[in-house]
């Protein structure tokens, strides 16, 4: 089998965790197929990233250009398309990130190669690449294979592949990539600062977190009371922010905050992987959900299958009583 590519992503002067996860998986596949793992890093100054990813890679391709300060999909696509055409890897891996959402689909169209996104497993079976995707909100796993082709592009689900420290010392090949194109049709205007409020949920020891099942803004008050007796803060999943019931500073998950409280009490939160990615380091997780099949019960230490509106008032009172004793 020809080589395996892993694109390593960085933002704000740091390699993304997902890139190390993807490199670890890529290393494992390359060892199994007895082929080379090539890590690709792209940026204005790639030295530090290249040295780091070399631990997993047989070779690092470090693409440098002054205009590559921010990771932008269009120039990245040009570079990757060039490298893939030139070196014909069997598998191209990258994390399923916001950048990859912009980048991977057009790249697959340009190269006319198949694409599988947000994969939770990748395996080699008799030389064929098989991927697993989690569909129908985590309730079903689907296995896919690919039609015969030179290259397949696969994006990996965040948090799905453990980081295994690398012990290689891959050789670094630096390439200065000249652009003819200006990309004027899509101008990067900068990062937008997040709205800042009074609460920092990442510092809370106890988080009482609510999902869509809270039904209305009015009902937040009930949850607030529970958080108060526990000496914690109220946090939430994405839909609660989408509906405008709580501000985004209280959102836990991939697109929100990553939290590590002593207790994470998930109320009517189904437990999508995007949400779980933000709270799985909690020391203790308790889930209350009407749906016994909700994925959150796979993450939680304790669970109650019931309506939060029935449990929360009683729980609040019981805790207050125990505190008084």
């Amino acid at each position: 089998m020809s080589s395996i590519f892993v694109m390593a992503e960085h933002r704000n002067q740091a390699l993304a965790d997902i890139s190390l996860q993807t490199l670890s998986k890529g290393r494992q596949l390359a060892d199994q197929a007895q082929t080379e793992l090539l890590a690709v890093v792209i940026g204005k100054d790639t030295t530090t990233y290249a040295e780091k990813v070399a631990k997993w890679a047989d070779k690092v391709i470090a693409v440098k250009n002054d205009r590559l300060e921010e990771p932008l999909a269009e120039p990245y696509q040009k570079i990757l398309a060039f490298l893939i055409k030139e070196r014909k890897p069997k598998i191209v891996l990258m994390g399923h990130t916001s950048l990859a959402m912009d980048l991977a689909p057009p790249l697959s169209v340009e190269l006319e190669c198949p694409l599988a996104t947000d994969c939770t497993d990748i395996s080699l079976q008799n030389g064929d690449v098989i991927v697993t995707r989690s569909i129908h909100n985590g309730k079903v796993n689907a296995a896919y294979s690919f039609a015969p082709c030179d290259t397949v592009i696969i994006t990996t689900r965040i948090g799905e592949f453990p980081i295994e420290e690398g012990n290689r010392q891959g050789q670094i090949e630096e390439i200065d990539f000249p652009f003819e194109e200006e990309f004027n049709y899509k101008k990067f205007e900068g990062y937008v600062a997040q709205e800042v409020g009074g609460v920092d949920i990442t510092q809370a020891d106890v988080l009482v977190s609510v999902g869509r099942g809270i039904k209305d803004k009015e009902n937040i008050e009930m949850v607030q009371k529970l958080a108060e007796v526990l000496g914690g803060e109220v946090s939430c999943s994405r839909p609660v922010v989408d509906y405008g019931w709580l501000p985004s500073e209280r959102q836990v998950g991939l697109s929100g905050k990553t939290v590590k409280p002593k207790l994470y009490l998930a109320l009517a939160i189904s437990g999508s992987f995007q949400h779980v990615a933000g709270m799985k380091s909690a020391k203790m997780t308790v889930a209350i959900n009407k749906d016994a099949g909700a994925p959150i019960f796979k993450v939680a230490d304790f669970g109650i299958v019931d309506d939060l509106f029935k449990i929360v008032p009683i729980l609040t009172r019981k805790i207050a009583e125990l505190k008084d004793n």
Binding site: E70, Y191, Q251
Partner: peptide, 10 residues
Amino acid sequence: LEAGTLESYT
């Protein structure tokens, strides 16, 4: 983007 940040474009 990840972790609550946004980027803007024209």
